[in-house]
Design a protein around this nucleic acid. Structure first.
Lengths: 228, 228
DNA sequence: CTTTTGTATTCTGTATGCAGCATTTTTTGT
DNA sequence: ACAAAAAATGCTGCATACAGAATACAAAAG
């Protein structure tokens, strides 16, 4: 496959002025995507030799990337036996959603206080675009924009730690939510909740925004539990 | 110094049946402690060659450990320039405490529902021991037990994700709180709050426990802000 | 035919070597 | 004497090489 060769050296006779991306860092993102998108299923062993050859890199940066992902909680390190893609039980997912809910409720309250009008308008723009994708039944882009909106609201809270932690949980859950198959009616309900979120944000009604975010993530459990 | 040689191989003519500790893993814990205890101050560059020689290990496992800690948020990776111990601004600390507060409020609610009587008794035991250390003015052990109690309460919530995330934040904050110099009166107030916590837990009064935990961490900001 | 033990292969864990980038020092020109 | 450019040094980033552990396979014994 040699998938990464395109990233590793961007065939640069080109004028690419700065290429200061460390290989292990590129690998972290690449592997993370592979895990999220299901190219590497839960339980899969990450074979250093094979995987390295496949990606066209040596074992050293690959190992460093794996250690990084282990700390992120996407892979598990088994001594003398390498790394495997972590498998999440239904309870694990439920636990994550519970924490995520609490964090987003907090984010909602803070966002209403800290956000500028311009920032809120940006979130609205994301939302409108998401609605377009929804009507076009473009599930992939819909998911992506959905996540982006949640991330954007968290950013509005202006709390660096909250942004960090939220990103970690979001990443761990991406794999699940990506796969989650919802029926049309549940999909519609989720979109409706998003509508509420945006309008609460625009009204800077922190109680309502927090409540909607909480309800949204509470319902998220119902939407994904079937696929577990 | 050769500090790590004592950890690396536990001189085991002993009956230790399994000795599967990877060097990079040992290094992660060792470096983490060094950072928390201030042996490596914020802004310090982690020199691979020098540090590796000092600890008696080669650069490879050291680099792997650094990548792990980078993902934990204790060090920062600067491309082509190595790693430096991350420096937290007062706002960063405040942000962390805000998130931690929300998480512990959640933990308090869940703990009252999920904990067994035996588990609660264990927390009480920790608390009593902490009080002893307090009366003995043994600040170091007091701090340690204090953290242990918070961790224990979070464990009672039976939420794996919450335990994870809480541990991450706790680790990042350890460095700060370790250094935090409180006056005697503030120290006494913190102890008093702990008293309240335990009694609320024993009564399984989740509203009150959650409230006390929240207040405790809210006040924590006052207690550490001076030393920043 | 099943089980156990010895061997071989494969993979992880660690060390070392080499190339490129950053930084610092030295040298040269004004 | 000062500034700018060039060389030299030191460090990171990556690849490769070697040693030890785990697993798979095969052969022999029950």
């Amino acid at each position: 496959m040699d998938e990464i060769s395109s990233l590793q050296r961007r065939a640069d006779g080109s004028a690419g002025p700065i290429r200061r991306t460390a290989l292990h860092d590129t690998l972290v993102n690449h592997l993370r995507d592979m895990i999220i998108e299901g190219d590497l299923e839960p339980g899969t062993r990450l074979h250093e030799g094979q995987l390295g050859e496949q990606l066209g890199v040596s074992r050293t940066p690959l190992r460093e990337a794996i250690k990084y992902l282990a700390s992120e909680g996407l892979v598990e390190l088994v001594p003398s036996r390498g790394a495997v893609v972590k498998r999440f039980s239904p309870k694990d997912v439920h636990d994550m959603l519970t924490v995520l809910r609490t964090l987003e409720e907090l984010a909602g309250r803070l966002a209403c206080e800290a956000a500028t009008d311009a920032e809120i308008a940006e979130v609205r723009a994301l939302h409108d675009e998401m609605i377009d994708r929804y009507k076009a039944a473009d599930r992939l882009q819909y998911y992506k924009l959905n996540q982006d909106i949640h991330t954007a609201i968290v950013r509005l809270a202006q709390n660096s730690s909250l942004i960090d932690i939220h990103a970690i949980l979001q990443t761990r859950l991406k794999r699940i939510r990506f796969i989650g198959h919802e029926g049309p009616e549940k999909w519609a309900a989720a979109v409706s909740e998003h509508e509420e979120m945006i309008s609460a944000l625009e009204a800077r009604d922190k109680t309502r925004l927090s409540e909607v975010l909480g309800r949204h993530l509470f319902n998220a459990w119902d939407r994904v539990r079937a696929s577990l």
